[in-house]
């Protein structure tokens, strides 16, 4: 009796595992693609926050720091408050690498960044960090150029539009 019960449980378990595996395999493609997009978007957010931390704490690579000091962009070497409003994604056509192209656009605001040059420099750094984070999350740094533009995931390629300052 006991033996039978044990046998029954094993069969049920095997059945459940079997059904689960079949469902997982049949849905894996969709799950994988969706999961990939989610991971990429979370990486993009991480990158944006890293970019903002560099800009707002005003800790730059040596060359950039000197460039700002010499190019009358000294304002950027002071700490400032920057806020990300949102990150939009725009799904575009399939590109030449047969990946779906997605353009990300960051909306940000800062009362301390006023000139066009300062907005461009700050925005470029935010965008660079977004692309870098996506590439690093998917180990695809070698597939792209030094600026990670575009950054690749297995099914998508990400580009960034100029940051919209509000």
């Amino acid at each position: 009796m006991n033996f039978d019960n044990n046998g029954q449980i094993s069969v049920e378990l095997l059945l459940l595992i079997g059904i689960t595996i079949i469902i997982v395999i049949s849905l894996s493609n969709i799950i994988n693609t969706e999961n990939e997009l989610n991971k990429a978007m979370i990486s993009a957010e991480n990158g944006a926050y890293e970019g903002i931390s560099i800009n707002s704490l005003a800790i730059y690579p040596e060359e950039t720091f000197e460039e700002y000091m010499n190019k009358s962009q000294e304002q950027l070497t002071h700490t400032k408050n920057i806020k990300i409003i949102k990150i939009d994604k725009k799904i575009q056509k399939t590109d030449k690498y047969n990946k779906t192209r997605i353009q990300l656009k960051v909306y940000a605001s800062s009362p301390y960044i006023n000139s066009k040059e300062d907005k461009e420099s700050t925005g470029d750094r935010i965008n660079y960090n977004i692309r870098k984070c996506i590439s690093e999350s998917f180990n695809s740094e070698n597939l792209s150029n030094a600026l990670y533009n575009p950054s690749f995931t297995p099914h998508y390629s990400f580009t960034t539009a100029n940051v919209q300052w509000i």
Partner: peptide, 19 residues
């Protein structure tokens, strides 16, 4: 890779804050 990248981002932000 995702976790590694996430940890590295947090470390960079932490270092910048510390500095």
């Amino acid at each position: 890779p995702y976790l590694n990248q996430n940890i590295s981002t947090n470390q960079n932000i932490g270092n910048n804050l510390e500095g």
